[in-house]
Amino acid sequence: MGLKKGIRFITLKSVGQYINFLSYVRPQKAVELSYALFSQPRIGRLYKESLPEILKNTETETFHHNEHYFQTYTWKGNETKILLVHGWESNASRWQKTLPHLQKSGSTIIAIDAPAHGQSSGKEFNVPLYAEFINKAVEKYQPTIIIGHSIGGAACVYHQYLFPNTSINKMVILGAPSDLKTLIDNYVSMLSLNTKMFSLLENRFLSHFNFRIEDFSGQKFASKFNVSGFIAHDTSDDVVAFEEGKKIASSWKNSQFIETKGLGHGMHDDELYEKVIDFLFKDSELLSS
C-alpha cells in the first residue's frame, strides 16, 4: 500500500469510527454525514473558462429542472442521435476516446453532465435525479441510442425502467453496477460502519426516494425491457465488480453480454468500440461509406 493510499485508508477508517460513534449519540447527524460522503463527488467539476479541448467546439445547452440545471454538449451529425451518460466523479469529457468511433457512423452525439458533475448544478449526486435529467434530454433530442458508463449506465437502466416508451431503441451499458445494495455494502465496509448505520442509511433512502435499497436493482429493472442491449464489463474492474454487469445482462431478454479482460473500469478499447459500432449499426444502411 503506497503512502497516499495508506493515508486515505486511515482517514476512511477514522471517519467511519466517528460516524459509528455519532450513530449512538446523534443518529440524525450520523446519517447526514454518511449520506453526504456517499453522494458528494470530490472531483469531476468543469468550469466554462477552462473546458477540456474536446468540449470546446460543441453546441452547449443548459436545461432547467425544478431547482436544478444540467449541461449538454452536442457534436453535430446526421439525424441519428446518440446520448452519452458518464459515471461517478467524471463528466462529459470522459467520452473523448469514444467519440471518434461513434463519429464514423455520422451520427449526432450528445453528452450530458450528471448532477453535481461537469457544469451541472448541485453538490449531491443521485441516480433518480440523473434519470430525470436523462429524460429531459431524451424528450428534447429524441436519441435512438443511449450509452452509459459506470453509475451512468445504472442511471440509463433506471431511466429505461421508469420511461419505457421513449425514442430509445438501443442501449449500451459499460462497467455498470446493478444493485444499489452492492454499492452501499461496499461503502459500509470501506468505512467499517456498524449495522445501526446500515439501517439508518436504509431509512434515508426510503424516506427520500421512496424505494428500499434492495429493490433498486438493474437486474430487476432490465427484466422489463424490450429495447435491445449491449452490456460489457471487464473481469479486472476494481471499481464495479464484474458480477454486476452479468446480473444486468442475465434478465435482459434482448441483450448480449461482452466480457473484456485487462481494460479495468474505464473500458476504453478500440476492439470493444468496434463491437459497439457493430451492435448499433450493422443492420442499418447508415454505414454505407
Rank of each mutant, 00 (worst) to 15 (best):
A155N: 06
A155Y: 02
A155G: 05
C156K: 08
V157G: 05
Y158Q: 04
H159N: 07
Q160M: 13
Q160D: 10
Q160F: 01
Q160R: 14
Y161S: 05
Y161K: 09
Y161C: 00
L162D: 03
L162F: 01
L162R: 14
F163I: 03
F163W: 13
F163G: 01
F163N: 14
F163V: 03
F163D: 03
P164R: 13
P164A: 12
P164V: 13
N165E: 15
N165F: 13
N165T: 13
T166C: 07
T166F: 01
S167N: 07
S167A: 12
S167W: 04
S167Y: 05
I168D: 07
K170L: 05
M171A: 15
M171V: 14
V172K: 00
I173A: 08
I173W: 04
A176S: 15
A176I: 02
P177I: 00
P177H: 01
P177F: 00
P177E: 01
S178W: 00
S178Q: 09
D179F: 08
L180Y: 01
L180G: 07
L180V: 08
L180S: 08
K181S: 15
K181N: 13
K181G: 04
K181H: 12
K181M: 07
L183N: 10
I184Y: 10
I184E: 08
I184S: 09
D185V: 02
D185Q: 11
N186P: 02
N186H: 10
N186Y: 05
Y187N: 11
Y187G: 08
V188Q: 11
V188S: 12
S189T: 15
S189Q: 14
M190R: 12
M190F: 08
M190P: 00
M190S: 13
M190C: 09
L191T: 05
L191H: 12
S192N: 15
S192L: 11
S192V: 12
L193A: 06
L193C: 02
N194H: 09
K196S: 11
M197R: 03
M197H: 05
M197A: 01
F198H: 12
F198W: 14
F198V: 14
S199G: 06
S199P: 00
L201S: 07
L201T: 06
